[in-house]
Amino acid sequence: MRSIVQERGAGEGAGVRPWSPRAEWAVRLVGLAAVVTTGLTVWLGLWVTPPSQVMGNLVRLVYVHPPVAWVALYLAFGALGLGSVLWLWPRTRHPFWDRLAAAAGEVGAVFTALTLATGSIWGRPTWGVWWAWDARLTSSALLLVLLLGYLALRRVPADPDTRARRSAIAALVALLDVPIVYFSVSWWHGHHALGLRGLHLGLRVDAGHRPADRSPAGRAGGPRAGGGAGRSARRGGTGGRGAKRRRARGGRAGGPGRARAARGAPGPGHAGVGSAVERQEAGMSYIDAGYIVALGVLAVYGVTLAFRRRRLERAVAELRRRREGGA
C-alpha cells in the first residue's frame, strides 16, 4: 500500500487522482454481483440440484472446487501475465500494468490456496485420502509456492522500476507452470484422470431426484433411491433368486470394492462408516465443510480488502494534503 502511495506521489508532475464516480459505481456493482452470484451458487448447489448417479451428493462440491480453480488458473494468471508483459514492453510501460499484476498475483494466491483446500476436502471421501502426490495436485502446490514467492519479491525494498521489472520476470517464470497444471491430467494419468471420467458420468443425474433433499431420509436414500427401486423390481425384485444371483455375481467379478458394496461394508473413501445412512451423512459433512471453508475464506478476504482500501484512501488523502500544503 505504501509503495502505491509513493508511486502516485513520486515523479515529475505526478498527482493523486481519486476514483471517478463512474469507476466507484462500477466497483460497487461488481461487488454486489459477486455476492449475489455466490449466494445463488450456494443455494443451487446445496438445495436445488439433485445428486448424481455416480458421485451422489459429493457432486455438490464440484459446483465450488472447479470454479475456484478456474478463477485462479485463468482469470488471475491471465491478468498477471498480461500486466507483466505490457509493463516489460517499452511502448506500453505504465505503472498501471504493474499494479494490475500485483493485484492479480494476490488474488491468484488466495484462490490457488482455496483450490487446494476444497480439492482436499473433496478428495477425502472420493479418493480416501486428504492428499495424494498426483501430478495436478503437485503442480498446483508448486504454483502456490511460486505465487507466494512472487508476492514476497514485491515486498523487497527497491525503487518502483526495479521492483516492477524483477516482479514481472518472476511472474512470467511462474506462468510456465500454468500449462503444466492444465495438461497434467493428459500427460500423467493419476487421480484426476479417474476423477474426470467419473465426473462426466456423475453429472448425469437421476430423473427421480429433481429437488435436492437434505433431510435424513433424503440423504439415506442416496442417488439411486427413486429409479433404482423400480429397476430392481423389474429385474426380479429386491429379494429372491434374482437378488441372490446378482449378489453372487458381484462378489465374484466385482473385486473387493464391489464385494464391500454388496455386503454394505465401507469403501476406501468411507473408512469406518458402515450403513448407507452413515455414508450419506459423512458425505454431507464433507460437503458442508467445503462450502464453509470456501465462503469463510472469501468473506475474510473481502473484508480485508475493504479495510485495506479504507487505509489506502486515508493515505492518499494525507498525501494530497501534504502536497497542497507544500504548494
Rank of each mutant, 00 (worst) to 15 (best):
L29I: 13
R235K: 15
I292V: 15
P211Q: 02
G128N: 08
A229Y: 02
T126L: 09
A207G: 14
L194M: 09
L153V: 06
G237K: 05
G202C: 01
L58M: 06
E324V: 12
D288P: 03
A248R: 10
A315M: 05
G222V: 05
H94Y: 06
R321C: 08
R17H: 11
R308V: 06
P95S: 06
P50T: 04
L86S: 00
A33E: 05
G119E: 03
T238S: 15
R22Y: 09
A171I: 01
E12C: 14
V59K: 07
A327D: 15
V30R: 12
V62N: 14
V316Q: 15
P211C: 00
E106R: 00
R166M: 05
G81Q: 06
S275A: 09
L312P: 01
E324Y: 15
H191D: 14
P268L: 15
R166S: 05
V181G: 01
L176R: 10
E324K: 09
V300S: 04
T126K: 10
T238G: 15
L176Q: 11
A135M: 06
L86P: 01
V59E: 10
G198T: 05
E318Y: 08
A109G: 03
A141W: 09
R234C: 09
P50I: 02
H94Q: 09
G267N: 09
G267D: 10
G283T: 08
Q53F: 13
R258K: 05
V16S: 06
P223I: 00
P18F: 13
I180V: 15
R247N: 11
F307L: 13
R246N: 07
D134Y: 10
G257E: 11
A152V: 07
R321Q: 12
P266H: 03
A282P: 01
I4P: 07
G254H: 05
L114R: 04
G326F: 14
G149V: 12
W25K: 14
Q6C: 14
G45H: 03
T92G: 07
S140P: 11
L80I: 00
G272C: 08
H192G: 07
V129S: 13
H192M: 14
A233G: 14
L153P: 00
A14W: 07
A109E: 03
W97R: 00
P223C: 00
R320E: 12
D213A: 10
G123I: 02
G274C: 08
A101T: 04
V178R: 11
V316T: 12
L153A: 08
G128T: 10
P50L: 00
